[in-house]
């Protein structure tokens, strides 16, 4: 059980990275529908950088750059060229599947056995990790998990307690108000999308070099979309995103656990994986009050 909860936290880490990035961007009014593609290119670049240099740090830096690149392209098309966000995102997600497979083969050919790197090691925190139960679950994780412990409350604080957060939230609710206050709406939105690129890139690399130690084109397998759904489920709030992430992380941990003990007879694996999705639909339908940003998904077009 302790193992399962520890796994939940670990598997939740990249999801929360993605979900918080999505929350911030959507609060500013932009749906980052390219999040799946950002994850995938992050995973790819993380692996390539890490494998070629032998350093995971280089891998993560490459992942950040790749995520930034995809996000910048997406932001440019959706924010500056004012194209449809869903259509653009879907197109870019399809593109990145082909692109990552192609570039992987260009660099490595078709290896007989999958290429691997050593994934991120866990770093037990002195003293804290000695606490019974909790120590094992919370404080025997890798560095990215510790990072998200800080990033989650920090993002909440930033959104709701600072002037930057107020500007971001206003840009998603009524961009005219931001414009009239003398702040460039497009810049605000673009920066939040770039931030989503950075965080999404790291999240993607978590799968390739943080956990599995290898890359394949289906490595993300819809987890970008899960981050997207968590943002929705969490009512566009980092607090809600944490809860949503735990639900999805737990489901994934159970699925992996079931697979590892080879118990497929009683409950098919897919059932556990499906539960959070079913939950999302039920919660969405049954929820009464949404705090969806009023201008979510609407490009800001200034008259004149």
């Amino acid at each position: 059980m302790i193992n399962l909860l520890s796994r939940t936290i670990m598997m939740g880490t990249p999801l929360l990275f993605g979900a918080i990035a999505e929350v911030i961007a959507e609060r500013a009014g932009v749906m980052v529908t390219a999040i799946e593609g950002i994850f995938l290119m992050g995973a790819w670049a993380g692996f390539v950088g890490g494998y070629l240099s032998g350093s995971l740090t280089v891998g993560f830096i490459s992942a950040i750059l790749a995520g930034l690149l995809v996000a910048a392209l997406y932001g440019w098309i959706c924010i500056y060229l004012k194209q449809h966000q869903v259509v653009t995102g879907v197109a870019m997600n399809i593109l990145t599947v082909g692109l990552s497979a192609f570039l992987y083969r260009v660099i490595f050919g078709v290896p007989i056995t999958p290429l691997t790197v050593n994934p991120l090691a866990t770093i037990p925190i002195p003293l804290l990790s000695q606490i019974p139960v909790i120590g094992q679950i919370l404080f025997n994780q890798n560095i990215l998990t510790y990072a998200i412990y800080l990033l989650a409350p920090l993002s909440y604080f930033m959104l709701y307690k600072t002037s930057v957060g107020l500007t971001i939230r206003s840009a998603g609710e009524n961009p005219e108000a931001v414009d009239v206050a003398g702040i460039n709406v497009l810049t605000v939105r673009f920066i939040t999308v770039l931030l989503a690129g950075v965080m999404g890139g790291v999240a993607g690399a978590f799968y390739s070099i943080g956990f599995l130690g290898m890359f394949s084109t289906n490595i993300i397998g819809g987890r970008g979309w899960i981050a997207f759904a968590i943002c929705f489920l969490g009512n566009w709030n980092p607090k809600g995103a944490v809860i949503g992430t735990l639900a999805f992380g737990f489901a994934e941990a159970i699925a992996i656990y079931m697979q590892s003990i080879g118990n497929n007879a009683l409950f098919p694996n897919e059932l556990f994986i499906a539960i959070p999705y079913i939950m999302t639909i039920i919660l969405t339908v049954s929820r009464k009050s949404f705090s969806v940003p009023a201008k979510l998904g609407v490009p800001y077009i200034k008259e004149n």
Binding site: L166, R169, N174, E176, D179
Partner: peptide
């Protein structure tokens, strides 16, 4: 402005 530029949710 004629149409106020206020954020209703704030």
């Amino acid at each position: 402005q004629q149409h106020f530029s206020l954020v209703p949710a704030h």
